Simulated assay, not measured.
Amino acid sequence: MSKKFQRFCGGLLAAFALLVIFLPRPVAAADTHAFKAANGTIQVPNHPKRVVAGLYLGQVMALKVNVVGSTKLEMANPYLDQAKLKQMTDVGTPMNAEAVLKLKPDLIITSNESDTKKMEKIAPTVEIPYQKTQQFTASMNYFSKLLNQPKQAKAFTKSFNTAAKKQVKRLEAAKISRKSSFGVYEMQSSKLYAYGSGFSRGAQAMLALGFKLSKPLQKVDSGAGFKEISVESLPKYQAHYMFVTTSSTKGQKDPALVAMKKNPIWQSLAAVKANRVIELPFNKMYYYDPFATRAQLKIVTDALIKANK
């Protein structure tokens, strides 16, 4: 190769290098997106790989996002993938900062200000108040935006709607009117509570099937969402179908629940007389995530059909 040709090639390379330097460089795609949460606008990873999710474990798993840590209570959810749960770490309630730090999360989801203040020092943290995402559709839309998973949300919603339609057909075949009202009630530490539609206990499933809360309970729903009531006031809060749970480990043998059933006021209720009181196990009705609500569609349908035989 001649020296003249070498100088020519060298000049071309130098010119090309200058051209590359001054040409506008392509802008790399952003790897985060802004999400408005209770604790402000947070820059959330577009594709989080290691999520710590306290109260919202089921919501995150429904969108097939990897969770590395949650709480003992949420990990006891019978409707979640048990194999995946075994791979997770209990981060405590309240969340333990040291335990979370060891998991090296790229996103943390909390439900209260106390946890949020500790977690914000570790990784991007999104605070979601409990009553923010209680109904299935709203929940799926919300978490889809948070986790950037519209396809997974659409797929799960499709499976949920298919499950709901199947149970509606069963109700129609059994000639059970979905115009009937319902209510959910729970005995907790000898205190009786009436609930609105946002505290699980099967309420979300009943709404998805087309039933409505009784009018008095609609007022509870639009207020705090739950209310402690007395047995004496039950006639005011009764419904056509009454779903009852107890948080006691003694289940349906809970002394407070047994005593209530013996009370003349309880026995005078229309639902009691017509065998429309439906007692359900607390551990199956407590959760309200997408997996739980989808499973509860069949549970409440089975119970309604049994009550109407």
Rank of each mutant, 00 (worst) to 15 (best):
F5Y: 09
F8E: 07
F8W: 12
F8K: 11
L19A: 14
F22E: 05
F22M: 10
D31A: 04
K36Q: 13
A38M: 03
I42A: 02
P45D: 01
R50Q: 08
L57Y: 01
M61I: 11
V67C: 03
V68D: 02
D81M: 09
D81G: 06
Q82G: 04
M88N: 03
D90G: 05
T93A: 08
K104N: 08
I108T: 07
T110R: 01
E113Q: 12
D115A: 09
K117P: 02
K118E: 13
K121M: 11
P124W: 06
V126N: 01
Y130I: 12
K132Y: 05
T137F: 00
M140Q: 12
N141A: 13
N141P: 07
K145T: 12
N148M: 02
Q152L: 03
A153I: 11
F156W: 13
A163W: 00
A163N: 06
Q167M: 08
K169Q: 15
S181H: 04
Q188W: 05
K191T: 11
L192C: 04
A194S: 12
F199E: 09
R201V: 05
Q204Y: 01
F211P: 07
F211I: 10
K215V: 07
K236S: 13
A239R: 03
T246W: 00
T249M: 07
P255R: 07
V258D: 07
K262S: 09
K262E: 11
A271F: 00
L280G: 09
F282V: 01
N283L: 05
Y287R: 11
Y288F: 13
K298H: 08
T301D: 09
A303I: 05
A303H: 02
A307Q: 08
N308Q: 13
K309C: 00
